[in-house]
Design a protein around this nucleic acid. Structure first.
Lengths: 230, 230
DNA sequence: ATAATACACGAACATATGTTCGTTGTCAAG
DNA sequence: CTTGACAACGAACATATGTTCGTGTATTAT
């Protein structure tokens, strides 16, 4: 019994597969046979065809006869991260907030910043039925929101809003504290009660004369945990 | 002054754009000019070329000269969620943990559960340079981990591990408390110190005789915030 | 050694596919 | 009406691209 040479993938097969994905990624359409040949230093188109037929039999690609640039890569759902087709949503990180001075990041009415250097990618499956407009993110700097169980370095995702409904958690700028904090929002007659998440802490009351600026409603908190030193 | 007829997109332009996305979606490669013509009931290839040039000038597509099936659709990043090509990672939610009895979810050695009913989708961009293997998620039930700033309902993403390095936050099952908690892990000679995240709380010491089961290392915490009642 | 098989090359071929050009009809402006 | 821009048609053309075929060279089995 002889072991078929072509049992597995040869080095060239692998190179072709790499080139296919790379080219498709870069150009948005598949390469021609001659372009594949170039990539592996083979002038003969028939030899490339030979390899492609093998790859097709092995189940790695699909081809349509007589159709140019019709090579499709079959994604076999390996252990590697899946290039999934789930809808993602890009949320810009508009800046840090925290105990420091007063950088109140107000999102532009015009929602630009799509190629902003800093953004978070959130699958819609995580957002649930949240409307996906007017979302933005802030990175927490400092421990000023620790009573709301939000840590230094956490990423808070908010919906832009000037007002809130009772019971919603909002990010507010407090002149009295000179800081941004996260609190549960309750309107009680003329005054507003801001309730910390930690029940052992006392609420803050805001009168109609005080300055209260609602930055947004909290939709989600994401924390990347890293080892502590010490 | 005359208003250019071709200012906006005509009905045919729209139909062509629809066909382009549809075809690309279905076949994995772009259509030829004649195929586009068929889809809008036009025999003349030059007319299709005419439309395509207009679409290109309008910025909706890209074409490469003399290259067959080289039409790319320019994603104008509309308000609608982008069908992005970013890599996602599916992390199974293996069950709730919390103050209740003792359901210690041990992930199967064989990492199956790809179509598990409950999973979280995480973009690799959020995971950073974390190795993407052996990750699983738990939904927190109850307030037993509130000292680690982890709330009821939060989703904790963990890496499977039996051991830990000093300073890492781990999820451990404590026989003495009969609960699962999140603590910072420190090995101090024969005993182990489990430090709560909240510095005002005292650490727990585990002797060599006590049962300590490490469930995993904490990689990320995700909290979906919902309005409170009351 | 001989045969069989896989691997390899290049030329010739067939056609799939983009490009160009001349012509025609429509419609609004001058 | 004439003009010109736009939309539309179809034929001819050029070439990009997949396919086929004949041949040659290793390597391995018989």
């Amino acid at each position: 019994m002889m072991v078929r040479k072509s049992a597995g993938m040869s080095d060239r097969h692998r190179k072709i597969m790499e080139f296919l994905t790379e080219f498709q990624d870069e150009h948005g359409y598949p390469p021609s046979i001659r372009q594949i040949g170039e990539s592996i230093d083979v002038d003969s188109t028939s030899l490339v065809d030979y390899y492609l037929n093998q790859l097709q039999e092995m189940g790695y690609i699909l081809r349509e006869k007589h159709v140019s640039r019709s090579i499709r890569i079959v994604q076999p759902m390996r252990q590697k991260p899946v290039r999934a087709m789930t809808q993602l949503f890009n949320i810009p990180i508009l800046g840090p907030i925290g105990a420091s001075a007063a950088p109140i990041p107000m999102p532009q009415s015009d929602f630009s910043l799509y190629d902003s250097a800093t953004k978070v990618e959130i699958p819609v499956s995580l957002l649930g039925r949240e409307r996906q407009e007017q979302l933005f993110a802030l990175e927490v700097d400092g421990d000023s929101m620790i009573d709301a169980m939000v840590n230094d370095g956490d990423i808070v995702i908010l919906r832009q809003a000037q007002d809130a409904v009772n019971g919603e958690m909002v990010a507010v700028w407090l002149d009295s504290l000179n800081a941004t904090t996260l609190k549960y929002f309750y309107r009680e007659g003329k005054r507003i009660r801001l309730q910390p998440a930690n029940p052992t802490l006392k609420p803050i009351y805001i009168g109609p004369e005080d300055e209260l600026r609602i930055i947004g409603k909290v939709v989600m908190v994401i924390r990347k945990v890293q080892p502590l030193a010490g």
